[in-house]
């Protein structure tokens, strides 16, 4: 059959077709005498359709689509780094707090899936030495599991900073992927109670190195100061903002904060207010982040909220 069947183009009717037509037509089309009886002559298959046929029809459940082996859409990667202090002063409840929080965080991260980006993480512990708990090969997907960390040794914070700086790199660090993939700004989460025991005690030395790194400067950072005696100064130096330093009240609080950071960064924040003269809708703004985190914290600690309004007879 020479009819062009593909859509979009009108088809000329060819000679062969006319040929077909003659063979095909049993009744003389030009004979006005013949009254065609639908029931007998003209109907090909007189199929009385008792019901109008619904066409969501019986499209088969397999077919060409199933042979396509569709892959998930290509996604960016959202890297999450945990920098966890495992120095001896963390022994006991503090370490327990960190571990159980991380268990929950991991379990949660596993469930955060969206087509905008894929979460991957790495954990750097620093105690006597500095170690990539999740391996030297880079970021790993969150499968939900967490291996308990044990406290030992000093706090090598400055060394941890140097190690992190090396890995925040696309050419030789953790952002070098087999196939071409880009990342969203990384999320860095510091959990520590302590003081740097290698060099500057507020971590200035290591942080100065880190600040040379572009990825670090573009990262979202929060710090969780574990315990009342924690060195807030070091944490503040790390985040660059006092408001992004928190105290780990409980595992849930920690989880809530990380949740907030992850969600703030995975999608572009809707900071753009359309009636501002020149809004910057794609700026992930830390003000919203701070606000969100604080709101969550207030939910958990309502008594902090109520101080002002208390009136006494």
């Amino acid at each position: 059959m020479p009819i062009k069947l593909t859509p979009d183009k009108p088809e000329p009717i060819s000679e062969e077709q006319q040929q077909t037509q003659e063979n095909f037509s049993i009744l003389p089309d030009d004979d006005g005498e013949i009254k065609v009886n639908l029931q007998k002559d003209i109907a090909v298959d007189i199929i009385p359709n008792e019901e109008p046929v619904p066409l969501e029809l019986d499209m088969p459940d397999s077919g060409m689509l199933q042979s396509f082996r569709t892959e998930p859409v290509a996604r960016k990667i959202t890297p999450i780094f945990f920098l966890i202090d495992v120095s001896r002063s963390m022994e006991g409840v503090k370490m327990g707090t960190v571990n159980s929080a991380m268990e929950e965080i991991m379990n949660d991260l596993k469930n955060i899936e969206n087509s905008d980006s894929e979460l991957r993480f790495a954990v750097l512990s620093f105690g006597t030495g500095v170690q990539w708990v999740t391996g030297e090969n880079g970021l790993i997907p969150c499968d939900g599991s967490w291996n308990t960390l044990v406290a030992d040794g000093f706090t090598y914070f400055n060394s941890a900073c140097r190690e992190l700086r090396d890995k925040l790199s696309g050419s030789h660090g953790f952002f070098k992927f087999a196939a071409r993939r880009t990342i969203t700004p990384p999320i860095l989460i510091l959990m520590t109670d302590g003081f740097a025991n290698d060099g500057d005690r507020d971590g200035n030395e290591g942080l100065a190195k880190l600040r040379e790194n572009k990825y670090f400067r573009g990262s979202y950072r929060i710090a969780i100061a574990i315990g009342n005696d924690a060195n807030q100064k070091l944490c503040e130096n790390f985040t660059g903002d006092k408001e992004l330093v928190f105290t780990a009240y409980n595992a849930n609080a920690l989880k809530v904060m990380i949740d907030a950071v992850v969600k703030g960064s995975v999608t572009v924040s809707s900071a753009g207010v359309a009636d501002a003269p020149n809004p910057d809708p794609v700026t992930p703004d830390s003000a919203t982040l701070i606000q969100t985190v604080q709101h969550e914290m207030n939910q958990l600690n309502p008594e902090e909220n109520n101080n002002e309004d208390e009136s006494w007879d």
Partner: peptide, 26 residues
């Protein structure tokens, strides 16, 4: 649920709902 009309050789015919009309070129 409406009637269709078609013409063969100048005569017009009706195809009522649930009937099948045989198709021919043109």
């Amino acid at each position: 649920n409406t009637n269709w009309f078609y013409t063969i050789g100048g005569a017009t015919y009706t195809c009522v709902p649930k009937q099948t009309v045989k198709l021919r070129n043109g």
